[in-house]
Protein backbone atom coordinates (compact mmCIF):
# COMPACT_ATOMS: atom_id res chain seq x y z
CA UNK A 1 0.00 0.00 0.00
CA UNK A 2 2.90 2.34 0.70
CA UNK A 3 3.93 2.04 -2.93
CA UNK A 4 0.48 3.06 -4.12
CA UNK A 5 0.37 5.99 -1.70
CA UNK A 6 3.75 7.14 -2.91
CA UNK A 7 2.77 6.77 -6.57
CA UNK A 8 -0.48 8.67 -6.08
CA UNK A 9 1.25 11.43 -4.15
CA UNK A 10 3.71 11.85 -7.03
CA UNK A 11 0.87 11.87 -9.56
CA UNK A 12 -1.17 14.34 -7.54
CA UNK A 13 1.66 16.64 -6.53
CA UNK A 14 0.67 19.35 -9.01
CA UNK A 15 -3.04 19.09 -8.19
CA UNK A 16 -2.34 19.32 -4.46
CA UNK A 17 -0.09 22.33 -4.96
CA UNK A 18 -2.79 23.99 -7.08
CA UNK A 19 -5.47 23.31 -4.45
CA UNK A 20 -3.22 24.72 -1.72
CA UNK A 21 -2.46 27.80 -3.83
CA UNK A 22 -6.16 28.49 -4.47
CA UNK A 23 -6.90 27.96 -0.79
CA UNK A 24 -4.09 30.32 0.23
CA UNK A 25 -5.23 32.95 -2.26
CA UNK A 26 -8.87 32.93 -1.11
CA UNK A 27 -7.87 32.52 2.53
CA UNK A 28 -5.48 35.44 2.29
CA UNK A 29 -8.22 37.63 0.81
CA UNK A 30 -10.47 36.85 3.76
CA UNK A 31 -7.62 37.44 6.22
CA UNK A 32 -6.92 40.82 4.62
CA UNK A 33 -10.61 41.73 4.71
CA UNK A 34 -10.74 40.70 8.38
CA UNK A 35 -7.67 42.81 9.21
CA UNK A 36 -9.10 45.72 7.28
CA UNK A 37 -12.36 45.40 9.24
CA UNK A 38 -10.39 45.99 12.44
CA UNK A 39 -7.62 48.32 11.37
CA UNK A 40 -8.05 49.40 7.75
CA UNK A 41 -10.48 51.18 5.46
CA UNK A 42 -13.35 48.76 6.19
CA UNK A 43 -13.17 49.77 9.87
CA UNK A 44 -14.03 53.33 8.90
CA UNK A 45 -17.40 52.50 7.40
CA UNK A 46 -19.48 51.16 10.25
CA UNK A 47 -22.38 50.07 8.01
CA UNK A 48 -20.19 47.86 5.80
CA UNK A 49 -18.30 46.62 8.83
CA UNK A 50 -21.51 45.56 10.57
CA UNK A 51 -22.77 43.88 7.44
CA UNK A 52 -19.51 41.94 7.09
CA UNK A 53 -19.49 41.09 10.78
CA UNK A 54 -22.98 39.62 10.57
CA UNK A 55 -21.84 37.34 7.75
CA UNK A 56 -18.35 36.66 8.98
CA UNK A 57 -19.15 33.01 9.58
CA UNK A 58 -18.76 32.62 5.83
CA UNK A 59 -15.15 33.77 6.16
CA UNK A 60 -14.42 30.73 8.28
CA UNK A 61 -15.83 28.17 5.90
CA UNK A 62 -15.54 29.33 2.28
CA UNK A 63 -11.77 28.79 1.90
CA UNK A 64 -11.82 25.35 3.53
CA UNK A 65 -14.86 24.45 1.42
CA UNK A 66 -12.98 25.41 -1.75
CA UNK A 67 -9.98 23.37 -0.58
CA UNK A 68 -12.13 20.33 0.21
CA UNK A 69 -14.05 20.57 -3.06
CA UNK A 70 -10.86 20.79 -5.11
CA UNK A 71 -9.79 17.47 -3.63
CA UNK A 72 -12.99 15.64 -4.55
CA UNK A 73 -11.75 14.33 -7.86
CA UNK A 74 -8.06 13.92 -7.01
CA UNK A 75 -8.12 10.23 -6.19
CA UNK A 76 -10.81 9.50 -8.79
CA UNK A 77 -8.40 11.10 -11.26
CA UNK A 78 -5.62 8.70 -10.27
CA UNK A 79 -7.99 5.74 -10.72
CA UNK A 80 -8.84 7.01 -14.20
CA UNK A 81 -5.11 7.32 -14.94
CA UNK A 82 -4.44 3.83 -13.55
CA UNK A 83 -6.99 2.48 -16.00
CA UNK A 84 -5.84 4.38 -19.08
CA UNK A 85 -2.10 4.07 -18.47
CA UNK A 86 -2.20 0.30 -18.00
CA UNK A 87 -1.02 0.55 -14.37
CA UNK A 88 -4.08 -1.30 -13.13
CA UNK A 89 -3.40 -4.13 -15.59
CA UNK A 90 0.23 -4.24 -14.49
CA UNK A 91 -0.68 -4.19 -10.81
CA UNK A 92 -3.29 -6.92 -11.05
CA UNK A 93 -1.03 -9.01 -13.29
CA UNK A 94 1.79 -8.84 -10.81
CA UNK A 95 -0.02 -8.88 -7.48
CA UNK A 96 -3.63 -9.79 -8.16
CA UNK A 97 -4.66 -7.98 -4.99
CA UNK A 98 -7.78 -5.97 -5.81
CA UNK A 99 -8.72 -5.24 -2.22
CA UNK A 100 -5.31 -3.73 -1.50
CA UNK A 101 -5.78 -1.41 -4.46
CA UNK A 102 -9.13 -0.14 -3.14
CA UNK A 103 -7.75 0.16 0.41
CA UNK A 104 -4.83 2.18 -0.98
CA UNK A 105 -7.19 4.61 -2.71
CA UNK A 106 -9.37 4.98 0.40
CA UNK A 107 -6.31 5.43 2.57
CA UNK A 108 -4.92 8.12 0.28
CA UNK A 109 -8.27 9.96 0.27
CA UNK A 110 -8.50 9.86 4.06
CA UNK A 111 -4.87 10.97 4.47
CA UNK A 112 -5.29 13.80 1.97
CA UNK A 113 -8.49 14.97 3.63
CA UNK A 114 -6.92 14.57 7.05
CA UNK A 115 -4.19 16.97 5.96
CA UNK A 116 -6.80 19.34 4.56
CA UNK A 117 -8.73 19.25 7.84
CA UNK A 118 -5.61 20.21 9.78
CA UNK A 119 -5.00 23.12 7.39
CA UNK A 120 -8.66 24.15 7.67
CA UNK A 121 -8.51 24.13 11.47
CA UNK A 122 -5.33 26.18 11.35
CA UNK A 123 -7.11 28.67 9.13
CA UNK A 124 -10.18 28.68 11.40
CA UNK A 125 -7.94 29.35 14.37
CA UNK A 126 -6.31 32.27 12.53
CA UNK A 127 -9.62 33.80 11.46
CA UNK A 128 -11.21 33.50 14.88
CA UNK A 129 -8.05 34.89 16.51
CA UNK A 130 -8.20 37.90 14.18
CA UNK A 131 -11.77 38.47 15.40
CA UNK A 132 -10.59 38.22 18.99
CA UNK A 133 -12.59 35.01 19.42
CA UNK A 134 -11.80 31.35 19.79
CA UNK A 135 -12.76 28.13 18.00
CA UNK A 136 -16.08 27.11 19.48
CA UNK A 137 -17.60 23.63 19.33
CA UNK A 138 -20.19 25.02 16.98
CA UNK A 139 -17.60 26.33 14.51
CA UNK A 140 -15.54 23.16 14.75
CA UNK A 141 -18.76 21.22 14.17
CA UNK A 142 -19.65 23.25 11.07
CA UNK A 143 -16.18 22.75 9.63
CA UNK A 144 -16.33 19.04 10.39
CA UNK A 145 -19.69 18.68 8.63
CA UNK A 146 -18.34 20.40 5.51
CA UNK A 147 -15.24 18.20 5.69
CA UNK A 148 -17.20 15.00 6.12
CA UNK A 149 -19.54 15.83 3.24
CA UNK A 150 -16.62 16.57 0.91
CA UNK A 151 -14.70 13.49 2.11
CA UNK A 152 -17.79 11.38 1.42
CA UNK A 153 -18.13 12.96 -2.03
CA UNK A 154 -14.44 12.22 -2.76
CA UNK A 155 -14.78 8.62 -1.60
CA UNK A 156 -18.00 8.16 -3.51
CA UNK A 157 -16.51 9.51 -6.70
CA UNK A 158 -13.41 7.32 -6.36
CA UNK A 159 -15.46 4.23 -5.72
CA UNK A 160 -17.87 5.09 -8.53
CA UNK A 161 -14.91 5.51 -10.88
CA UNK A 162 -13.81 1.98 -9.98
CA UNK A 163 -17.36 0.74 -10.51
CA UNK A 164 -18.15 2.37 -13.83
CA UNK A 165 -14.52 2.26 -15.05
CA UNK A 166 -14.62 5.87 -16.18
CA UNK A 167 -13.98 9.09 -14.27
CA UNK A 168 -16.28 11.22 -16.43
CA UNK A 169 -19.18 8.77 -16.10
CA UNK A 170 -18.63 8.74 -12.35
CA UNK A 171 -18.79 12.53 -12.26
CA UNK A 172 -22.10 12.50 -14.15
CA UNK A 173 -23.54 9.89 -11.80
CA UNK A 174 -22.34 11.96 -8.82
CA UNK A 175 -24.18 14.99 -10.17
CA UNK A 176 -27.59 13.29 -9.90
CA UNK A 177 -27.77 13.10 -6.05
CA UNK A 178 -26.08 16.51 -5.80
CA UNK A 179 -28.74 18.11 -8.02
CA UNK A 180 -31.50 16.34 -6.07
CA UNK A 181 -30.00 17.50 -2.77
CA UNK A 182 -29.74 21.01 -4.15
CA UNK A 183 -33.45 21.11 -5.03
CA UNK A 184 -34.49 19.65 -1.67
CA UNK A 185 -32.19 22.03 0.21
CA UNK A 186 -33.21 25.12 -1.78
CA UNK A 187 -36.90 24.19 -1.36
CA UNK A 188 -36.47 23.98 2.41
CA UNK A 189 -34.46 27.21 2.43
CA UNK A 190 -37.07 29.14 0.43
CA UNK A 191 -39.82 28.07 2.83
CA UNK A 192 -37.72 29.00 5.85
CA UNK A 193 -36.69 32.28 4.30
CA UNK A 194 -40.29 33.28 3.63
CA UNK A 195 -41.19 32.37 7.19
CA UNK A 196 -38.27 34.22 8.81
CA UNK A 197 -38.38 37.21 6.49
CA UNK A 198 -42.00 37.80 7.41
CA UNK A 199 -41.07 37.66 11.08
CA UNK A 200 -37.86 39.70 11.32
CA UNK A 201 -36.60 40.57 7.83
CA UNK A 202 -33.81 37.94 7.84
CA UNK A 203 -31.57 37.62 4.78
CA UNK A 204 -30.83 34.26 3.02
CA UNK A 205 -27.45 34.14 4.76
CA UNK A 206 -29.12 34.60 8.15
CA UNK A 207 -31.42 31.72 7.33
CA UNK A 208 -28.53 29.55 6.23
CA UNK A 209 -26.64 30.27 9.45
CA UNK A 210 -29.69 29.65 11.61
CA UNK A 211 -30.49 26.42 9.83
CA UNK A 212 -26.93 25.15 10.04
CA UNK A 213 -26.79 25.89 13.75
CA UNK A 214 -30.14 24.21 14.35
CA UNK A 215 -29.24 21.17 12.26
CA UNK A 216 -25.80 20.66 13.78
CA UNK A 217 -27.00 18.30 16.48
CA UNK A 218 -28.24 15.75 13.95
CA UNK A 219 -26.14 16.72 10.91
CA UNK A 220 -22.81 15.70 12.45
CA UNK A 221 -23.93 12.16 13.41
CA UNK A 222 -25.76 11.88 10.07
CA UNK A 223 -22.63 12.92 8.17
CA UNK A 224 -20.47 10.50 10.21
CA UNK A 225 -22.88 7.63 9.60
CA UNK A 226 -23.26 8.56 5.92
CA UNK A 227 -19.48 8.64 5.45
CA UNK A 228 -19.08 5.33 7.24
CA UNK A 229 -21.77 3.73 5.05
CA UNK A 230 -20.17 5.09 1.88
CA UNK A 231 -16.74 3.97 3.05
CA UNK A 232 -17.61 0.41 4.02
CA UNK A 233 -20.29 -0.21 1.41
CA UNK A 234 -18.19 1.41 -1.28
CA UNK A 235 -15.12 -0.60 -0.29
CA UNK A 236 -16.82 -3.98 -0.57
CA UNK A 237 -18.66 -3.04 -3.74
CA UNK A 238 -15.50 -1.71 -5.39
CA UNK A 239 -13.49 -4.81 -4.54
CA UNK A 240 -16.31 -6.92 -5.93
CA UNK A 241 -16.45 -4.77 -9.10
CA UNK A 242 -12.71 -5.15 -9.57
CA UNK A 243 -12.85 -8.91 -9.04
CA UNK A 244 -15.56 -9.23 -11.66
CA UNK A 245 -14.03 -6.73 -14.02
CA UNK A 246 -12.20 -8.07 -17.04
CA UNK A 247 -9.08 -6.09 -17.82
CA UNK A 248 -8.57 -6.09 -21.56
Amino acid sequence: MKGMLLKDSILLKKNMILSAAVFLFIGLLFVLVRISMEHGNLAKDEEIRQSLLSNQFLFYYISPLVLFLMGVDHVAGTIGLDMTSGWMRFLFSETGDRSRYVRGKICFTVLEYGGMLLIAFGYLWLMTALSGESITWSRAGNLSIIWLLCLSAALLQSLLTVGVENKEKAQIIMMIPIILLYFVFSGVMINKLEEMYLNDGSTPLDVLREELMAAQSWLIPAAVIGSAVILTGGYFLSVEFLKRREIK
Partner: peptide
Protein backbone atom coordinates in the same frame (compact mmCIF):
# COMPACT_ATOMS: atom_id res chain seq x y z
CA UNK B 1 2.50 6.56 -15.58
CA UNK B 2 4.15 9.12 -17.83
CA UNK B 3 4.92 11.47 -14.96
CA UNK B 4 7.02 8.96 -13.00
CA UNK B 5 10.78 8.78 -13.39
CA UNK B 6 12.62 5.43 -13.31
CA UNK B 7 14.05 6.39 -9.91
CA UNK B 8 10.58 7.10 -8.52
CA UNK B 9 9.29 3.93 -10.13
CA UNK B 10 11.97 1.93 -8.34
CA UNK B 11 10.82 3.31 -4.98
CA UNK B 12 7.17 2.60 -5.79
CA UNK B 13 7.95 -0.95 -6.96
CA UNK B 14 10.13 -1.63 -3.94
CA UNK B 15 6.96 -1.38 -1.83
CA UNK B 16 4.96 -3.55 -4.23
Amino acid sequence: HDSLTPAQLSTVLSYL
